[in-house]
Design a protein around this nucleic acid. Structure first.
Lengths: 209, 209
DNA sequence: CGCTTGTTATAACGCCGTTATAGACCTAAT
DNA sequence: ATTAGGTCTATAACGGCGTTATAACAAGCG
């Protein structure tokens, strides 16, 4: 009896082992990719560089992530996850304007601290990369989160289209200023505090509501 | 006397010939690049593709444009030149709001008709491409043109910083909506007329002035 | 004609993402 | 213990990229 149970336990343990190892390795690969991306951006993110940092061969990128696109999808999800986190501010019992301002500040901070992620989710890779449906879903959730947040600024009776337009307007303003801060032409404008400028534009918008 | 003049003329003619031929070839190379770019964007714009379309070897890209960067600089200049043209609307004797609206419509149209140029001037190539000082100058001129145009909306006594902020706000709005129209997530929103949405946002901004 | 200089086609270089091949390892059956 | 089959993965190769080196060609001069 003891021998039979012993063999069964060993077999169960061995079945779980590879799965855990595979998930751990996948996480290590993604961590390596994130670190390279954070410092060197898309240009530094080659499968050879990731494989080297994760101490595997390039083949591992394909078996665990189905290739570079899988890596980009994971980073895209990371990028929009950061956006969702930035928008996660206290709404209840807080002045709506203060809440939205706080979120915008978070967003501007994220765009700076995670510049590569930000550029990725805004299409730096161009037509060479199309996000997966799963990645797009996280983006959609982020947008819904933005709509919910910014809706506190307008009457609850407003239509869905109105709420969406309001969210898009605020997003356009903030995103626009993020772009100017990094744009080859506008970043050369002297004596501009881009955060202050962006928040001033948001304030103007809020006052117009 | 006639023979001396004849030889001098021949020598002058021969000196001019190569220069004209070089400029013509440079223009043909750039035309080939523009056509490839217009249809296939940055991804299709390889030196081999340009060389093939211009019926030269890749070496010609280097001797005439000092490499791919020179091509990108020329396209960057083209991109901002289109922007300047879009902003070139009648101001005198026209309602300021109508003038700005007209320019915004032009801008939105340009962003659609010249999508690859637009993406290039807004950084699609990322850190792999840095515009030359000459290219940046055209961008600066475009921005100055935008400031001049949008200043008709505010009092002449406004400070330069105020005029600049106003221009940035309108630019952020319009650019933001251009981005959403093409963004993998937001472009999936059903039943959105992006031009109408963008112009509505601009109108809200103008009313807030 | 031979030599020198300038121009340019073409192959090679090192990089890229990806795939094919070979090798290593494990398991089951005999 | 040996063999066969399956799975995983390192590594080389493939075809593309931007760029440079090499060889070939053309023009000019003595």
């Amino acid at each position: 009896m003891d021998e039979v149970e012993d063999m069964a336990t060993n077999k169960t343990s061995k079945d779980l082992g590879p799965n855990i190892k595979s998930e751990t390795l996948k996480a290590e690969i993604l961590e390596a990719a994130s670190q390279i991306f954070l410092v060197g951006g898309l240009e530094a993110l080659s499968v050879r560089a990731i494989a080297k940092k994760a101490k595997i061969s390039t083949f591992g990128i394909y078996s665990h992530f189905q290739g570079k696109k899988g890596i980009l999808d994971a980073l895209y999800v990371e990028g929009f996850t950061y956006v969702i986190e930035a928008l996660d501010v206290q709404i209840d019992g807080v002045d709506p304007k203060v809440a939205v301002f706080s979120a915008c500040r978070n967003y501007l901070g994220l765009a700076k601290a995670r510049a590569a992620h930000y550029r990725l989710i805004f299409g730096e890779a161009g037509t060479r990369y199309t996000p997966s449906p799963e990645a797009l879903e996280v983006g959609r959730i982020a947008f819904e989160t933005l709509i919910d947040l910014t809706s506190v600024l307008i009457p609850e009776t407003a239509s869905d289209a109105r709420k969406r337009q309001n969210a898009l307007e605020i997003w356009a303003i903030v995103h626009g200023f993020v772009c100017f801060e990094n744009h080859a032409v506008t970043k050369l404008i002297p004596d501009v505090d881009w955060t202050i400028s962006a928040l001033a534009a948001v304030e103007r918008h809020i006052k117009s509501l």
